[in-house]
């Protein structure tokens, strides 16, 4: 059975594209045939995050306008042979495609792929409406900040109004030490406020910056904690029941001193 999942957030810069890239790669590693669709027309980025920017010939708008066949625009990722990318157009804007065209595109892709993952642009305008048009379900990415959580709440409301129910939450860039000090909202706080199901928690991790620099999805890095979190998310999408990983860092010298003084 084929599924179309949109990755959205409202606010920009919370990690939609990184999440899309890692979930998609993870699903491909689990032997699923996956296509990543960059719906951010005019501000494409999924191609550079995936390291596929040099292989673009045709893009999404070329497909919807009939300049090429869908298969011609799909870029096969040579590292993971079940993974494909449909890049966004860079020289056009969000109005170059309609929700109806996106719906048709998703239907066509569904015939060939197990998973269609759509990277939604920030905002709630045309680009958002296009991105969710053909999706069966949504993943909402947020960070533990008031602005990101507020925007996530608005997106949940808009998805509800568009009859897309039961979105799942990914909390990105959580910093366990700040949570411990009471200076960052924890998972329970955010679930309590947003009242939706949790799909996963990704800790802040420098490996993400390095892997984006290189154009290699972090999910392949065994050492990275964020990568572990993404692998867990992928298993949950595939229906496995995986417990949340512990966000506790190894006990450092300061912690040991604190314990000694009973603080």
């Amino acid at each position: 059975m084929s599924e179309v999942i949109v990755v959205t957030s409202g606010k920009g810069g919370v990690g939609k594209t990184t999440t899309t890239a890692n979930i998609g790669t993870g699903l491909a590693l689990a032997d699923k045939k996956v296509v990543l669709v960059d719906a951010d027309i005019g501000l494409r980025n999924l191609d550079v995050v995936m390291g596929l920017e040099n292989r673009i010939v045709y893009d999404l708008i070329d497909v919807t306008e009939g300049n090429c066949r869908l298969k011609q625009a799909l870029i096969r990722d040579k590292r993971y042979d079940k993974l494909f990318l449909l890049p966004a157009a860079q020289t056009r804007d969000k109005n170059a495609v309609s929700p109806e065209q996106m719906r048709q595109l998703c239907e066509e892709l569904q015939q060939d792929f197990d998973f269609v993952i759509i990277d939604c642009p920030a905002g709630i305008e045309q680009g958002f409406k296009n991105a969710i048009a053909g999706a069966d379900r949504a993943i909402i990415v947020t960070t533990p900040e008031v602005s990101a959580v507020r925007d996530a709440d608005r997106i949940i409301g808009l998805l509800e109004a568009a009859e897309m129910h039961n979105p799942k939450l990914v909390v990105n860039r959580i910093r366990p030490q700040m949570v411990k000090k009471g200076d960052m909202m924890d998972i329970d706080d955010m679930i309590d406020i947003l009242a939706i199901d949790l799909l996963g928690v990704v800790p802040e991790d420098e490996h993400i910056v390095v892997s984006t620099n290189r154009g290699e999805p972090a999910i392949c890095n065994e050492q990275s904690r964020a990568s572990q979190a993404y692998r867990n998310i992928v298993r949950r999408i595939l229906g496995e029941n995986v417990p949340l990983m512990s966000l506790e860092l190894e006990v450092g010298l300061v912690d040991r001193l604190k314990k000694f003084f009973g603080l």
């Binding site: 008031v146 959580v149 507020r150 000090k181 009471g182 200076d183 706080d189």
Partner: peptide
């Protein structure tokens, strides 16, 4: 006290 309670309340 941590600032997260302020964040939660404002949200």
């Amino acid at each position: 006290a941590g600032s997260k309670d302020i964040a939660k309340e404002r949200l």
